[in-house]
Simulated assay, not measured.
Amino acid sequence: MDATVDHTMMRVEDLDASLDWYTTHFDYEEKARMEMDTFTNVYLGPEDVHEEGAVLELTYNHDDRTYEMGDAWGHIAVRVDDVYDAYEELMDAGVEDYRDPDSCGGRYAFVTDPDGHEIEIVQRDHGARWSIDHTMVRVEDADAAIGWYVRTLGFDLVRREEMDDFALYFVKPEGAAEEAMSIELTYNYDGRSYDFGDAWGHFALMVDDLEDAWETLTARHAEDYRDPESCDYVYAFTRTNDGHEVEVLDSWPDAAE
Rank of each mutant, 00 (worst) to 15 (best):
V80R: 00
M36Y: 08
Y84S: 14
F39A: 14
D82H: 03
T40P: 04
T66L: 06
V49N: 11
R33E: 13
H62K: 15
L44G: 01
A72W: 01
P46A: 07
M69G: 05
M91L: 14
E51S: 12
E89T: 15
F39Y: 09
E57R: 04
D48S: 12
L56G: 02
H50E: 09
P46H: 02
E57L: 03
M34Y: 05
M91A: 15
D63R: 06
Y60G: 06
T40V: 14
T59M: 11
E89Y: 14
D82A: 04
Y67H: 08
R33K: 12
N41T: 09
E47F: 01
W73R: 06
A86W: 00
L56M: 12
Y43S: 06
D82M: 01
K31V: 08
L56H: 03
N61G: 03
D71K: 06
V83Q: 00
G70M: 07
G70T: 06
V80Q: 01
R65M: 09
T38V: 10
Y87K: 07
D63G: 04
E35T: 10
K31T: 03
Y87M: 09
V80W: 00
E89S: 15
M34L: 09
D71C: 07
E51D: 15
R79P: 00
H75L: 12
V78C: 00
T40K: 04
T38A: 13
A32R: 10
T59C: 08
H62R: 13
M36L: 15
D64Q: 12
R33L: 08
D63A: 07
A54Q: 08
E89G: 13
E51L: 06
T66V: 08
D64R: 11
G70Y: 09
E51M: 06
F39E: 14
R79E: 00
D37V: 10
M36P: 04
T38L: 11
V49P: 00
A72Y: 02
L90Y: 09
D81K: 13
G53D: 06
V42S: 01
M91H: 07
W73Q: 10
D85M: 09
L56S: 02
N41A: 14
N41Q: 15
L56P: 02
E68L: 09
Y67N: 05
E51V: 11
A77M: 03
E57K: 05
G45N: 02
Y84E: 15
G74Q: 12
G74N: 14
K31C: 02
K31D: 06
K31W: 14
V55F: 08
I76C: 05
E88R: 14
E51W: 07
I76S: 05
P46Q: 05
W73C: 11
G53C: 03
H75C: 09
N61F: 14
L56A: 03
Y60A: 07
T38C: 05
A77R: 02
M69L: 15
G53I: 02
D81V: 07
D85P: 06
D81E: 13
T38W: 10
E88H: 13
M69T: 12
W73T: 13
D81Y: 05
E30R: 12
